[in-house]
Amino acid sequence: MIMITGGAYEGKTDFVKNHYSCKITDGKSCDFESVFTAECVNNFHILVKRLIESGQDVLAFTERLCKENSDLIVITDEIGCGIIPLEKDDRIWREQTGRAGCIIAKNSDTVVRVFCGIPTLIKGEL
């Protein structure tokens, strides 16, 4: 498993396009089950939001994903570095994204953080 993270619009998707040849599935709109056979899932943080809205257990989904699709490339925004949101739903989303991201990172051989288009390897090797 490979994880690509960083803030919004920092160059995460371009990094994946330049370094890997894979079909990118968009977490904003894809079928939940399709993620288990996908090559790369983009916007994982939005997928988390959609899972919460549909009443699914995000952490169980993420554990299953790591087990069943261990070659997956996951692209996710970092969304936790701000003020605690006023809305409870936003707080739950932000926290579940953090926890799910920790599970993905733990199960990834390689984790890259992209900032200003510059990739920094924070786990494993490229």
Partner: peptide, 8 residues
């Protein structure tokens, strides 16, 4: 240091 639920 880190954001929310980042394992800090």
């Amino acid at each position: 240091i880190g954001g929310s639920k980042c394992g800090k």
